[in-house]
Design a protein around this nucleic acid. Structure first.
Length: 470
RNA sequence: GGUCCCUUCGUCUAAUGGUUAGGACUCAGCCCUUUCACGGCUGCAAUAGGGGUUCGAAUCCCCUAGGGAUCACCA
C-alpha cells in the first residue's frame, strides 16, 4: 500500500476520536499512563478528540478513590481530557439493550450453567484446548428454566477466520473456532466489560482504539459484536506492554508502578511524559522532550512491536536533563511547595541564585532536601565528627579569613581577591583552604563553587560559621 | 497446554536487500576544575541459533530456541 494512502487510512483524513479507558481499581499504572499519552498524542496529531472513559462495570472492584487517583495522575501528566469524562456504569441501560438485541437476533443465547457445571466445562476446555461454548448454545429455552439464573453469552461464529489489521501489530488472522462464547450480560443483569466497551466505543464514535497489547486477544472477540450489529469497526493499535528488568510484565516487585509515585519521588511531569513516550516510540533517533513537539511528530506506525523494559537509569537521566532545562522560577516553586518551605526575602534570593548550580547535582529535585540545612539553618554548624576535628585544627585560619571577609565590601570580586591574597601570603594553594572552608560553611566536602556560596550566604552568616567554636 | 505476539550492544532504539551495523542511557578512561557536579572527548559492547532465497541478508522465507500476553459472571 502506498504510504500516503496508508496514512490516510490510519487517521489523517478522519475526525479522529481516541479514548483512554482505565478501570478504577487502583492507582494509575505507568503502563496505563503511557497508553493515555499515546491516545492523547494521536488525537492531537490529527486534530481530533481525546476522551477519558472510566470503565467501572465491576462495581465491587471500582472505587471513588481510584477514580480520583486516576485523574490526579492524568492531570499531573497533562493528558487529561478537555471533554467530559464518561462513566461506563452510566450507560448500563444502553449496554443491556444491546445484549437483548443480540439475543433477539439469535447472535447470543441464555446460558443456565451453574458454577459447578461451569467449572467442569472450563477445566475440560483447558485440557482439550477448545474454547468455552455452553451446551445451552444449541438448546431451546426450557419452560422450567424461567426462574433460574442465567447469563447471556455471545454465539461466536464457529467457522471462518477473523483478521485485524492492527496499526502496531500488523495483520493478524485467527480461526473463529478458537473464539469462546463470552458472557456479555451477567446473571445480575449487569453488562461485562466485553460488551460495554464495544457499545461505548460505538456510542462515542471512537475511530481508533489504542490500548495495551494485553487486549489484543479481546479484539477478535469484541469485533464479533460489532459485526453482528453492523457497526463500524474502529482501527486498532495494540501497544506493547512495559516490562520489568526481568522481562515480565511490570509489577510491584519491580519497584514503583504507580505513576504518581514518581511525582512523590521527585520526577517532573515532563520527564515522565518524555520517558514513557520514548519507551516504545521513537521519532527516528530524534529525542523529543516536549509535549507540543511530540504531538507534531507522533505516529503510531513508529511504535515498536516488542515490549520495552522500564529502565530507571534512563528516567533519571531524562529527569536530570529536564531539571537543568527548567526555568528557575518553575522549579523553585515546585520545591517550595513540596517541602512547604517558608523563606524570608534573603533566603529566597539565596535559594534562587544557587538553585541552578544545586540542580546540576541531583537527578530528582527532592534530593535538594539534603542541602536545606546549610542553606537555611540559622545556627548552622558542621555535624560530622571527623570534619569537626579538622575544623578545630584550622581554627586560626578560619578566623583570619573570617575577619578579612568581615572588613571587605561584599562582592564576588572582593571575596575572590581576599581568598587569593590569603593563600598567597601564606604560600598555600586553594586546595589547602578550599575543603576546610567548605566544611565550615556547608558541613560537607562537596558543594557548588565556594566563592558563590560565600557571596550568597552573606557576610554575617559566613563570618559566624567561620568563627564557630568546635 | 491451546491461541496470538515478540527477539539488533546490559537497557531504549536507528538502519524497510549493499553502512566500518548508527545514536542515547549505563559503565570505564581522559580533559576541564577549589570539591562534588555540569560539560567536552575517547572507549567497551549487539543483529538468539540453524537452514534456505539472492551476486549480496539485521532486513525476505522455513525450522529451532528463548521471552511475553491471553485463555473469568476482572477489565
Amino acid at each position: 500500500m502506498p504510504n500516503i494512502l496508508f496514512n490516510l487510512l490510519k487517521g489523517s483524513n478522519l475526525n479522529v476520536v481516541t479514548r483512554f479507558a482505565p478501570s478504577p481499581t487502583g492507582h494509575l499504572h505507568i503502563g496505563g499512563a503511557r497508553t493515555a499519552i499515546f491516545n492523547y498524542l494521536f488525537a492531537k496529531k490529527h486534530s481530533g478528540k481525546y476522551l477519558v472513559r472510566i470503565e467501572d462495570t465491576d462495581k465491587n472492584r471500582s472505587s471513588e478513590e481510584a477514580i480520583k487517583a486516576i485523574h490526579k495522575g492524568l492531570n499531573w501528566l497533562n493528558v487529561n481530557s478537555e471533554h467530559d469524562v464518561i462513566y461506563q456504569s452510566q450507560n448500563f441501560n444502553s449496554h443491556i439493550k444491546v445484549a437483548h438485541e443480540l439475543l433477539e437476533k439469535g447472535h447470543a443465547y441464555k446460558c443456565y450453567l451453574n458454577s459447578d457445571e461451569l467449572e467442569k466445562l472450563r477445566k475440560k476446555s483447558r485440557e482439550n484446548g477448545i474454547p468455552i461454548k455452553s451446551p445451552w448454545r444449541n438448546k431451546k429455552e426450557l419452560y422450567d428454566n424461567k426462574n433460574r439464573e442465567f447469563v447471556i453469552r455471545l454465539k461466536m461464529p464457529s467457522d471462518g477466520t477473523t483478521t485485524i489489521d492492527d496499526i502496531v501489530q500488523g495483520k493478524v488472522t485467527v480461526k473463529n473456532e478458537i473464539l469462546d462464547d463470552m458472557v456479555i450480560l451477567r446473571s445480575d443483569n449487569t453488562p461485562t466489560y466485553m460488551l460495554s466497551s464495544v457499545v461505548d466505543d460505538n456510542d462515542m464514535r471512537i475511530t481508533h482504539v489504542i490500548r495495551g497489547d494485553d487486549h489484543f486477544n479481546n479484539a477478535f472477540r469484541q469485533i464479533q459484536i460489532i459485526k453482528f450489529l453492523n457497526w463500524n469497526i474502529p482501527y486498532y493499535a495494540h501497544i506493547p506492554l512495559i516490562h520489568g528488568t526481568d522481562g515480565a510484565k511490570l509489577s510491584k516487585r519491580h519497584g514503583a508502578t504507580s505513576l504518581f509515585d514518581y511525582h512523590d519521588l521527585g520526577y517532573t511531569s515532563d520527564a515522565m511524559f518524555s520517558y514513557l513516550l520514548q519507551l516504545g516510540w521513537t521519532a527516528k533517533n530524534y529525542e523529543v522532550f516536549c509535549i507540543d513537539k511530540a504531538a507534531k511528530l507522533f505516529a503510531l506506525e513508529n511504535v515498536s512491536k516488542s515490549p520495552a523494559k522500564f529502565d530507571i537509569k534512563k528516567l533519571n537521566n531524562i529527569n536530570a536533563k529536564n531539571l537543568k532545562s527548567m526555568k528557575t522560577s518553575d522549579i523553585y516553586k515546585l520545591v517550595i511547595d513540596r517541602f512547604k518551605l517558608s523563606l524570608n526575602n534573603e533566603e529566597q534570593k539565596r535559594f534562587k541564585s544557587l538553585l541552578p548550580e544545586l540542580l546540576k547535582r541531583v537527578q530528582v529535585y527532592t534530593d535538594l532536601e539534603f542541602e536545606f540545612d546549610w542553606l537555611f539553618q540559622k545556627n548552622f554548624f558542621c555535624k560530622d565528627k571527623n570534619y569537626q576535628l579538622i575544623l578545630q585544627k584550622n581554627n586560626l585560619m578560619l578566623k583570619e579569613i573570617g575577619s578579612q571577609l568581615k572588613a571587605c565590601e561584599w562582592s564576588v570580586d572582593n571575596i575572590k581577591h581576599i581568598l587569593n591574597q590569603y593563600i598567597q601570603d601564606k604560600s598555600l594553594t586553594f586546595k589547602d583552604i578550599g575543603p576546610i572552608l567548605r566544611m565550615a560553611l556547608t558541613g560537607k566536602t562537596n558543594s557548588p563553587d565556594l566563592i558563590s556560596i560565600i557571596y550568597e550566604l552573606g557576610c554575617t552568616i559566613t563570618v559566624n560559621r567561620l568563627n564557630y567554636k568546635y
